[in-house]
């Protein structure tokens, strides 16, 4: 069993195809929607956590790619420039998954748990010193 968070981008032409339910049926995968921005007749962005057997997972991903969905894996894609982060906390106010959170309440340093990140990009926009970044495809 594996489980990975992925960001799927559906180009306008295929935005109305039921590709996600296809992969569930065809490859016995389950998914959990973390974030969705889908507009009719426009590009759609869907962040999912997909789980299943490794082989079917890979086939499912391949199926999406064959159908022109562009895929990025969320894991480890969020990055913090440790030399510019000064642990102010602006990002803590917006991170929806507690990937950015203060655990040590004595030093009040801001921790980053990359495995909780869903690549929503809120912290990238909000960080006053631009310490947070995601690769361009997000």
């Amino acid at each position: 069993m594996i489980s990975k968070k992925v960001v799927l981008r559906f180009p306008e032409e295929i935005a109305d195809k039921p590709l996600v339910s296809d992969i569930c049926k065809k490859f016995e995968l389950t998914f959990n929607i973390m974030r969705a921005n889908i507009f009719p007749r426009k590009e759609g962005i869907l962040t999912l956590e997909i789980s299943g057997e490794e082989n079917s997972f890979n086939s499912g991903i391949q199926y999406l790619k064959d159908n022109s969905v562009s895929i990025s894996f969320v894991e480890e894609s969020i990055n913090r420039d440790e030399s510019s982060c000064y642990h102010c906390g602006f990002c803590v106010a917006v991170c929806p998954t507690e990937a950015l959170i203060i655990t040590d309440r004595k030093t009040m340093r801001v921790d980053l748990f990359k495995d909780r990140c869903i690549a929503c990009g809120y912290c990238v926009n909000v960080c006053p010193v631009k310490a947070m970044s995601l690769p361009d495809e997000f």
Binding site: Y86, H87, C88, G89, F90, V92, I102, R105, T107
Partner: peptide, 25 residues
Amino acid sequence: LKSGFITINGKKVPTAPLSSYSGAI
């Protein structure tokens, strides 16, 4: 505030600092 939650109108509300305490130390 530094515990991470305060109560407003009886509701538990998460808090976030904007000033760096670790920087202040």
